[in-house]
Design a binder for these strands. Structure first.
Lengths: 283, 283
DNA sequence: TTGCTCCTCACGTCACGTGAGGTGGC
DNA sequence: TTGCTCCTCACGTCACGTGAGGTGGC
């Protein structure tokens, strides 16, 4: 029978950890003196403790270890299969974390390069984007003078069905030939409704990884944000896998009296808020 | 001026996060209604929030971000240099974590292989071992019959100097030719004392990564533990970079009346506790 | 008798998420 | 008037580490 510090020395863990494992029922002392509450351990408790430490090293949490050790004393085959399954889950989880840290490292290094070249750094962020139903109209044109009217038309279409979702409108850049635009304006809907030419209704799929940058102010300096986003994408080892979106988080609707949530609207161009999104994937 | 949920939608973060950032002073609302305590934000707070999110994505903690943003409004050059330094620290930290997760993944996969081949798995653990002063005696012999007497001699040496440390004795396996031993017995000391032939005094250096397995019971099955340790080392992509140690955490001192801490001693061979340690390194 | 060891709270860590219970605003 | 939104606590997360304050054992 060992007192806690002796058992701690044998097992190479701290006495605090032993008390903690007692508290959560993972490893109870062989005997507790009812008078002094002193914990006493025996040598044959060492293998269990060593197994706990080893499983902890594999990345299991203490409650998972508790389950594994509980089933160990029960049906042997179940335990092995269960351990096998949990190890596979662990492997997947660790691989996920590895990929995440790799990407983080690339971001840090890209930022370091930016600083060393004394470039202004944009705040690019990766996230996923949920699927969305939208009324859309696509058109090719030599410039964007018609964009505002296209949005107006599609907004009125959504209003007619009372299907306007409480989400910001956006534009999709399909072509990227210089001096010739191929764009699609999109207005989110609450549900699928039948489209009628020239307004189309379709669902934009979920995008797993979207590189995003938020631009505040007038549209004059939007191209700089686009350029920064593409630069960031390259530096971080990603490549573009789809058309970019321009999401109008805050904009001017002119005098059109559209039924839009007021939070989207402003008259002051310095208060425009636009997010540029680029679907990306590694490599 | 936006209410919290509108600003949350603009910035793509949760209202809860905004409240949290207010609480810790990272991003205060532009105005708080003193009557209702409602928080109100302005569009020009968006860039700061986007920077916060981007820095968070790089792996900075919120208090670090607070410091970075605080210095940003101050002296510009200091801020850039500081960010540069912190990014380098981040990079180092991420690289360390990557290596750690890689090793963990290897351990998980080795364990999976063990299970699939239905091998009993030993609980091997990696840790570092601190440097230690010890009185030692090294000898080559065709078998280990003299080991006990060697230990006795070195223990008496340590006693004479009243320099016996409260640590377990161990043995170092220098040679590994079959049927011929080259071993060194070692007794930890509290300080450096002059050696006198045949007892030597030397310091064992710190070992960064020691693969360890604890064996309980008599010495008869120690070779199985040794074999498991070497197998584990290979499977996990490590290689041995030094002689193995056998640490006697609990053993029998016969009738020698040595002044040893009682926790080390037992008469019952099934209660022997021995740790085998192998210095290893990746690749 | 004096340290030494042990005990039990209780708090801190990190960045929020999740209710509970109550109230202002259209 | 009725939801809807907002508010402030307060607790939970994960595996302990770090005192505080008090007591048994040689």
């Amino acid at each position: 029978m060992f007192r806690i510090s002796d058992f701690a020395r044998l097992s190479r863990v701290s006495a605090k950890m032993l008390r903690h494992y007692d508290d959560i029922g993972l490893l109870k002392p062989a005997w507790v003196d009812p008078e002094t509450e002193y914990r006493y351990y025996t040598a044959d408790q060492l293998p269990r403790l060593n197994r706990i430490i080893a499983l902890k090293d594999l990345g299991f949490r203490l409650d998972e270890i508790a389950r594994l050790l509980a089933s160990e004393s029960g049906d042997e085959t179940v335990s092995v299969e269960q351990l096998h399954g949990m190890l596979k889950l662990r492997r997947t989880e660790i691989e996920r974390r590895l990929a995440e840290e790799q990407a983080r490292l690339a971001r840090v290094e890209a930022r370091l390069v930016d600083i060393e070249r004394e470039l202004p750094s944009y705040d690019v962020v990766l996230r996923s984007v949920e699927p969305v139903w939208a009324a859309t109209k696509r058109q090719t044109a030599p410039n964007d003078l018609g964009i505002e009217r296209m949005f107006e038309e599609v907004e009125r279409f959504a209003e007619r069905f009372k299907a306007r979702a409480d989400e910001p409108p956006f534009m999709v850049y399909h072509g990227d030939k210089p001096d010739w635009l191929d764009v699609e304006v999109a207005v989110p809907l609450t549900r699928s409704v039948p489209g009628s030419s020239p307004v189309d209704v379709r669902q934009f799929p979920r995008i797993e990884t979207m590189a995003c940058v938020v631009h505040t102010g007038s549209y004059a300096s939007l191209p700089r944000a686009f350029a920064a986003l593409h630069r960031w994408t390259q530096l971080n080892g990603y490549r573009s896998i789809g058309p970019a979106r321009e999401v109008y988080l805050r904009f001017s609707a002119g005098d059109k009296k559209l039924k839009l949530p007021p939070v989207f609207l402003t008259r002051d161009a310095t208060e425009f808020v636009t997010e540029i999104q680029l679907p990306v994937s590694l490599e």
